[in-house]
C-alpha cells in the first residue's frame, strides 16, 4: 500500500521500498552493495568472536568464553536436544550457524552507522530458506526412503479415497511451497517493516524539525517514539532469528519422525 503525495519535491517524501535499493559503493561493480558488505562483515565478526571466545577455554570461563558458550548452549540444548531429540548433534552446527548469522545480520539494523538489516533484501532469506528446505527433505528421504517419505506427506491415513483429490494438493503445496516461502517471507517482512518504521519516525522527525514553530515543538515526540521503537526492534530481531532457527529444527524433527 502506497500513499503517494501529489506534490512531490515540495512536501515530505515518505520512506518507501526505494530506500532499500542502495547503489553499489564501487563504481561499475554491480554486486558490491551495502547488504553484501554487511553479510561479509557479519561472517568476519562471528568468526572472530567465537574463535576468541573458544581459544583459551578454561574450566573457570572468562567473560568472553561465558558469552560464547551461553549462545552455543542455548542453540544446542534449547533447539537441538529439546526439539530434534536423540540424533540432534549432527544438526547443531547448521542450527548454530543459522542462528548467529541471522541474529548478527538483524542487529545491523539498529547498530549506529551500519543501520541496515541485511535480511530486508529478500534474496538473503530466500537462500537461507532454500538451504533449510533441501536439508529437511534430504534428511527425511535418507531416513525413510523416497517412496515412503512422499507417501507419508501426500496421503493421510483413515480418509475415504475420493477425498484425497482435495487433500493431496494441499499437502504437497504445504511441504514444497508454503513452508520455504513463509519461512523466508516472515523474516524478510519483519526486517523490512521494522526498518521502514524506524525510517518513518526518524526522517519524519527531522522533517518536522525543519518546519514552522508548531511543527518544531512536536518533533521531539517523533524522536522519542523512534528511540522506543528501536528497542522494540531489538526484541523483534532476536525473536525472528530464534523463530527461523526453531522452525528449521521443527521441520528437521518432522522429517526424522517416522509418523507425524
Amino acid at each position: 500500500m502506497r500513499l503517494i503525495h501529489a506534490a512531490t519535491g515540495e512536501g515530505f517524501n515518505p520512506p518507501s521500498a526505494k530506500d532499500f535499493e542502495l547503489p553499489p559503493f564501487i563504481e561499475g561493480v554491480d554486486w558490491a552493495t551495502k547488504p553484501i558488505l554487511l553479510a561479509f562483515l557479519s561472517v568476519i565478526f562471528i568468526s572472530v568472536f567465537f574463535i576468541a571466545a573458544s581459544r583459551k577455554a578454561a574450566v573457570v570461563p572468562s567473560k568472553l568464553q561465558f558469552a560464547g558458550e551461553g549462545v552455543y548452549n542455548f542453540v544446542r540444548e534449547g533447539l537441538g536436544r529439546e526439539i530434534i531429540g536423540h540424533d540432534f548433534l549432527k544438526f547443531v552446527p547448521y542450527l548454530f550457524t543459522l542462528f548467529t548469522f541471522i541474529l548478527v545480520n538483524n542487529f545491523f539494523g539498529i547498530i549506529p552507522f551500519l543501520q541496515f538489516p541485511t535480511m530486508s533484501r529478500v534474496s538473503f532469506p530466500y537462500v537461507l530458506a532454500a538451504i533449510t528446505f533441501f536439508i529437511f527433505h534430504y534428511v527425511g528421504i535418507k531416513k525413510q526412503g523416497i517412496v515412503k517419505y512422499l507417501r507419508e506427506i501426500m496421503f493421510m491415513p483413515g480418509v475415504p479415497k475420493p477425498v484425497y483429490i482435495l487433500l493431496t494438493p494441499i499437502e504437497i503445496a504445504t511441504y514444497f511451497l508454503v513452508r520455504p516461502l513463509t519461512l523466508s517471507l516472515r523474516l524478510f517482512a519483519n526486517m523490512f517493516a521494522g526498518h521502514l518504521l524506524l525510517l518513518v519516525f526518524f526522517l519524519g522527525g527531522e522533517h518536522l524539525l525543519n518546519g514552522v514553530l508548531g511543527l518544531k515543538l512536536v518533533s521531539p515526540f517523533a524522536f522519542v517514539i523512534g528511540i522506543g521503537l528501536t528497542f522494540f526492534e531489538f526484541m523483534v530481531q532476536v525473536l525472528q532469528a530464534y523463530i527461523f532457527t526453531l522452525l528449521t529444527a521443527l521441520y528437521i524433527a518432522g522429517a526424522l519422525a517416522d509418523e507425524h
Partner: peptide, 11 residues
C-alpha cells in the same frame, strides 16, 4: 487529503 492513492481493501 487529495492526491492520495491506494486501495481501501487493505484498510
Amino acid at each position: 487529503m487529495e492526491g492520495m492513492t491506494g486501495t481501501l481493501n487493505l484498510v
